[in-house]
Amino acid sequence: MDENRRNFLKKAGSAALGLGCGFPLLMAGCSTNGHSSEENSSSPNQWAMVIDVQKCKEPAIRAACIEACRKEHNLPTNPPPNQPAREVKWIWSDKFETAFPDQAHKYLAENPADLQVLLLCNHCTEPACVKVCPTAATWKRKSDGIVMMDMHRCIGCRYCVVACPYGSRSFNWRDPFPDRNDIDKQARKEYPTRSRGVVEKCTFCAERIRLWQERVDKDPKLLESEPAPIPACVEAANRVAGGEGALRFGNLGDSQSEVSRVLRDQNTICRQLALGTGPNVYYLV
């Protein structure tokens, strides 16, 4: 995005508010764009994903990704019947034309109605959801650019669901585990569950990123064999035959990372670029 313009808007906004109200608190409010002071040290890191649409045409790959995410994050396994719009989804698949309405012209080489693409949170550079959240339960993590979600602070106002242009946020309309036994039998104990009435979304497997970070911090040599953390969906796609490289994950701040290389070498598109949110999931068409 146009960095100068953004910075100008931010500064002008804080100045106007500060002058208007004569309230130093306001300035503080505008300048701390995130949670804590520790996070203020802005870093160039930004986790990003490149999705190969051609490889993902294989339904087995898409299904594997979606299923892996469900298991990893204890997503409710049984979406209510007759209520598809109430499904909790972090990564899902839908028609090209519903995801890329501004790209799907009628002379497209491939009938866009037949083309299914994998969709997930874009971890935008200027996330619309973060702007509107009244409790900062969702925020842009400055250290690595992930749009995080605290399901235990969320009040369930659904402002973010309404504001996100990518449909990446789901509300828990009912108990995620209506059956008490489900959570014992099926749930992955390593991931916290959530309650009914809160919003959730993809976090690029922030828990895996953290474990990776801990390992790398302990033993920097690991970076050679494991240059980036591997989200559950990426791992799942790589395991399916023909799915290697269908999803690639890496740091845009590192020019040697896999995603940086792919973006340099090949043409990619993003969802709804015109909105100015700066999505960080790229599609190889």
Binding site: L26, N33, C133, P134, T135, A136
Partner: peptide, 8 residues
């Protein structure tokens, strides 16, 4: 926890 940037 309310941040000032939210219209709410």
């Amino acid at each position: 926890y309310g941040p000032l940037r939210s219209p709410l």
